[in-house]
Deep mutational scan, measured.
Amino acid sequence: MTEYKLVVVGAGGVGKSALTIQLIQNHFVDEYDPTIEDSYRKQVVIDGETCLLDILDTAGQEEYSAMRDQYMRTGEGFLCVFAINNTKSFEDIHHYREQIKRVKDSEDVPMVLVGNKCDLPSRTVDTKQAQDLARSYGIPFIETSAKTRQGVDDAFYTLVREIRKHKEKMSKDGKKKKKKSKTKCVIM
């Protein structure tokens, strides 16, 4: 069974824990209790493949930012979460993405942009803004509501699919490099 290491990042209060708990335990946590770091595991079937999701729910508070490099190193894919009623959390996505790329030393890291709290009427981040940002990053965008469960499975499952595509691409690139290195030079 394939294991996928997913990391949920975003500013404090955007609903990272609520999304994760909704996926794992099928219930909505409405009281806000700032996370330092929590880890969850769940076995699911995605596109006919049974897999184990190892999900790291991270601290959004700035005082825990020193811990970010460590979990970013171990993560295979990242859910970059903002709240649709919090423009600052949307603007912060850029910083999370840049930090992930720096730590992973790669421009090509599996990510999904997630606009959470889409059940709320007080939207300050337009869907088109988020779609445009995701398009500019070359990553999928999904709106979710941890409260109603809308888009929750889709967000995590899409990230797994992005990781699969990335692994497939990397193995193809690896095979191309191996083929090239088999060419021999004969000096007579």
Rank of each mutant, 00 (worst) to 15 (best):
A134C: 07
K176Y: 08
D126C: 08
A130P: 04
L159M: 04
T183H: 06
A134D: 02
L133C: 05
K128C: 10
C185K: 15
D154Y: 06
V186T: 14
K167N: 12
A155F: 01
K177Q: 10
Q131N: 07
K169R: 13
G151M: 08
Q131P: 03
K128H: 12
K167Q: 08
K175I: 05
L159E: 00
S181R: 05
F141N: 03
D153C: 12
M170S: 12
K169V: 09
A155S: 03
D173V: 03
Y137C: 13
V152A: 08
K169P: 07
V125W: 01
K167P: 01
M188F: 03
I163H: 00
D154C: 06
K167S: 05
K177C: 11
T144Y: 01
R135E: 13
D153T: 12
D132G: 05
T158C: 09
D153M: 14
R164H: 12
E168H: 08
S136R: 05
V125K: 01
I187Q: 15
F141M: 03
K167L: 02
K165P: 00
T127I: 12
R161V: 01
A130W: 15
K167E: 04
L133H: 04
Q150N: 12
D126V: 05
L133Y: 10
Y137V: 09
R149E: 03
T158S: 10
G151Y: 09
S136C: 09
S145G: 15
R161G: 12
H166T: 09
V125F: 01
F156A: 02
F156K: 00
Q131R: 13
M188Q: 15
T183N: 14
G174F: 00
K169D: 10
V125I: 02
K128T: 13
E162D: 04
I142H: 02
K147E: 14
I139Y: 06
D154H: 08
R161E: 11
F141S: 02
K128E: 11
M188G: 15
A155T: 04
T127G: 10
T127N: 12
E168M: 11
I187Y: 13
S136D: 14
K175R: 07
V125P: 01
E162F: 01
D154F: 05
K167T: 04
Y157Q: 14
V160T: 03
Y157E: 13
G138L: 01
K177V: 11
K165G: 06
E168S: 04
L159G: 00
K147G: 15
Q131D: 09
L133F: 09
Y157H: 14
K182F: 03
K176R: 09
T127S: 13
S181F: 02
I163C: 02
K172G: 10
V186A: 15
F156E: 00
A155V: 12
K165R: 04
L133M: 12
L159V: 06
S136K: 12
K178T: 11
T183E: 15
Y157S: 14
Q150P: 09
Q131I: 07
K165F: 02
